[in-house]
Design a protein around this nucleic acid. Sequence first.
DNA 1: ACCTGAACACCGTTCAAGT
DNA 2: ACCTGAACACCGTTCAAGT
Lengths: 229, 229
Amino acid sequence: MAQQVEAARRVPLNRDRVLRAAVALADDTGIESLSMRRLAQELGVVPMALYKHVANKEQLLDGMVDVVVAGIDPPAGGSDWRGTVRQRILSARQALLRHRWASRVIESRSVPTPAVLAYLDSMIGMFRDGGFSVDLTHHVMHAMGSRLMGFTQELFDDSGAAGQAAPPAGLAAAYPRIAELAGAAAHDRESAVGRSCDDQFEFEFALDLLLDGFDRLHRQGWTSAPGTR
Amino acid sequence: MAQQVEAARRVPLNRDRVLRAAVALADDTGIESLSMRRLAQELGVVPMALYKHVANKEQLLDGMVDVVVAGIDPPAGGSDWRGTVRQRILSARQALLRHRWASRVIESRSVPTPAVLAYLDSMIGMFRDGGFSVDLTHHVMHAMGSRLMGFTQELFDDSGAAGQAAPPAGLAAAYPRIAELAGAAAHDRESAVGRSCDDQFEFEFALDLLLDGFDRLHRQGWTSAPGTR
DNA sequence: ACCTGAACACCGTTCAAGT
DNA sequence: ACCTGAACACCGTTCAAGT
């Protein structure tokens, strides 16, 4: 480790090394403790040296987003739109899971980065190549980016110690419906240690539900019928 | 305004006034410029005075989330699950739109606040009362909280000056599919000034697609079939 | 010309000294 | 007992002084 730092000090700094170090630091210690000063220290460099390679912290975050998005697998040139889209989305999910801070940072950016635009562009292409109209593709893209509730995500992921499934008694009394769900979810899981929901399953459940909907609308020749809006 | 501050100074501080002022400040100046010190100043109070009412900034943010969630309309005791859910989700969307920082703050919280839990609990209740199994309800809740792509949201919302629709020429060349979509979206809009997408329409499009899917699964008596996973 | 230490204008929070 | 100023350990970034 100290050896690594030594080696790092010899290599001249460049934008790429700065970004990779920032991503690694955010992965290890959380995005909220990523500071220009700590990052510089990690690189064995004076804080001001970073400003040679990124204009400011905002641009550093933009660059970090691009590093993450670059980690998404390229589109597999499959035949059917559905399989291609599905595989790409699942790959993007993997990339975002590797960097838990990423989705929040992406959301905080005011303008999308080039890598994000390229990703969206290629995703649009998959639907268009599958015969989707511009109109339907447009709404489909919005649907995939929207979240109907601002929460839920990791609700039952009690990431505490060796997880026994039972929720605290107080909680069960105050929120009986949640307790019922959490209890059931914990029950029908064989290896109910640690986390009680299979997040991958939940994600694919939502994904397939939407893809089903897209497919149906596409086959019906759906239009948003501009006149009526 | 100065008058308001004067009046505020007379009234003794309490948790509720602190939270409301914090929400207003975040609404006005953005969440990233909300600091304990600025908030104290806004309230005509020394920074340390705030710590009588919130343990720290994290707890302040929790409290702010609860204020926002409290602004969601109570469930309308309608007959059908679909209408009730739909209306509640749309009301929640309105609450989150009134406070643009809210969804990001909610996402950053490590444990959900009581108000969020109560909201989720009541939402679960709507599906259960509509005859949904615990199993299906569980997955439905996850589906409503998930986002398939980490972005898209306000992509084409060029919040620049009096919006002419044409995207920058460079962008069109680099991301032709995006340009195509953006152009089409701008075209079929009568009042194409300012924003080119009707966000409310997009949201309801995604919402109805998912509700359709839920309805279908429910009617089919869908189960997650634990044995096969 | 490049690099960098000190400085500026901020943070959240602790703590001891004042009333 | 309550309140609060000063202080501590941080920030991001500017800028002038050093090489």
